[in-house]
Amino acid sequence: MKLILSSCFLQMQLSFSRSMFRYCLLVDPIFFALITYMIYKDSSVENFIAYVILGTGLSSLFNNIVFSSAGDIDRERYMGTLEMIFTAPGGFRNIILGKIIGNTLLGLLSMLVVVVFLNIFFGVNMKIASPMFFVMAMLLSVVSFIAISLIMAAIFTLSRNSRGLMNCISYPVMILCGFYFPITILPEWSRVFSYILSPTWAVKLLREAVYGIKDYSSFYMESGILLALSAAYIVLFIILAGVMEKRVRVKATLGVY
């Protein structure tokens, strides 16, 4: 537990000391928000709030949690510290979890930046109809993003060339999960993927919480689905981590020499 915490703090400290990271965390989302704002400006107010704030905020958060966590594994590999944290008695899984939580907190900061920026420069306010449910949906979303991130980190530990993969899946996820537009406009066949990706449900719940929940039973049901998917991801991670911890010692991918 202590190790998770200290890995979390270390991660925040390390990440924040990289100037590129600060850019991605604080500046990039602002540009992103700006573009989205311009695109949606003349559409109805309803869309505006949901898609600009939730869309950019969530994708900053998502990218931060999932992609920087995965990239950090690679960074540790090149620093030569991956072998050390891998063999640490404290447990590699705890360290990964700590790192991901660290990135999550930073990601939330990034989301906050978007909200504050839009508020100050465009006077856009996010009116949340059901704040309680919004917080709950947010918590569930974060948990599910962390679960995805764990899986990614396990894959990245095992393979040395997964960096490419990481860059390839960012946009498909944003599209499939309806970060910027409802998935109902996507082709029928692609919705299968949407439904097994937990961010789809996260986005849906958050949007409902912002507009006001019309049908509570379906809100609970969707929360349940999100929770179940997250749990399934965590189980998958545990299985994967077990396999990874064995394979990595056979394949010798922890180091770069």
């Binding site: 270390l10 000391s17 620093m79 510290t81 008695p89």
Partner: peptide, 26 residues
């Protein structure tokens, strides 16, 4: 202990490195 300069967190101080590794070893 591996020779060379890798295997440390360069952006941290020596003390912080050791503090972190002592958490790794519980």
């Amino acid at each position: 202990i591996f020779g060379g300069e890798r295997g440390l967190y360069w952006r941290l101080s020596a003390r912080d490195n050791l503090m972190y590794f002592s958490d790794l070893y519980r």
